[in-house]
Amino acid sequence: MVRRLALRLAGALATAWLIASTCFLLSRALGAGAPQLLNDEQTGAFDHYTAAETQFRQRLGLQQPLFYFRLLPWRWHGTPNQYHSWLTEALHGRLGASFRDGAAVETSLRTALRVTLPLTGSALLLTAGLALPLALGMARRPQWYRRFVPVAYLLDSLPLFVVGMLLLTLLASPDFWPLFPAYGLGTEGAEGIFWGNWLNTAYYLALPVAALVLVSVPALALPLTEALRAQQRQAYVATARAKGASARRVAWHHLLPNALPVFITRLSDLVPGVVAGSVVIEVVFALPGMGRLLAEAAAARDLPVLIGGVLLIALSRLLAWLVADTINALIDPRLA
């Protein structure tokens, strides 16, 4: 078991490295991926435009060859190359410096995660906490099922920004009920989110979390409901009921353990989203999280930040799958 786990962990790490390397090489090999010093608004000084761009590329180390060799046709470049320096740095736990302000990528990611994790993490926990009882209720009461399923499909089909904007317009606008803050975190002079100030944070995150939860509850509750309903038809449930077990007991002790793997798998699919953040919600509610960091990095061609983010998300996805499989194997040895 431990050996298998270690092997799979190594596999996950190797896959993450492969994904990040591919992104690294592709983003830098393509002309449109190159960062520019002067955008279309800036005209620059006459006769100094080219020089400025060259100096800029030199400072970022972009004049170096990209990889150990090039293909089509073959040419050997050797070690001083962009990929080599990135890899050596990455092996030491450093992901390079942002092209925009020279800050270490780890620092940017950490700052963004401090905002994103409370937001998406609490949304995930709430989603799981809501989906579980909802699915149990729906499995036990057909009339709940009939009423909730259309609502779930409706919520599932709503784009996230529509939900966000609706919540914002209804609960944060002076025209309706301005109960919640419209934007930001309300942390005056504090870096990221302070746990000591959690009540204030909860207040500021209420609307964004609500939007995320509303949209993702169906994705979790519907498959679980189906799995529970399927379990209900199995013979052992009738046996348990015949033995005099209460409906509640049957639900919690017999149905749920059997349907749990579905739930855990779906949950593990949502975990990378926790790390990746949600661009839409972060833009609508002006939160400086991972989603916006990566979207802005992509727009500004800040490749080190982008690649760092992709690496982090890929790792979290692969590890989440690993953890989910392990838990499932513990719950139900047949799945091992």
Binding site: A172, A182, G184
Partner: peptide, 18 residues
């Protein structure tokens, strides 16, 4: 200087006196 990327959100915040 408050960074608010979405204009609709900025308008709400302005109208609420934030």
């Amino acid at each position: 200087f408050h960074v608010v990327p979405n204009p609709a959100t900025a308008l709400l915040a302005l109208r609420r006196g934030k």
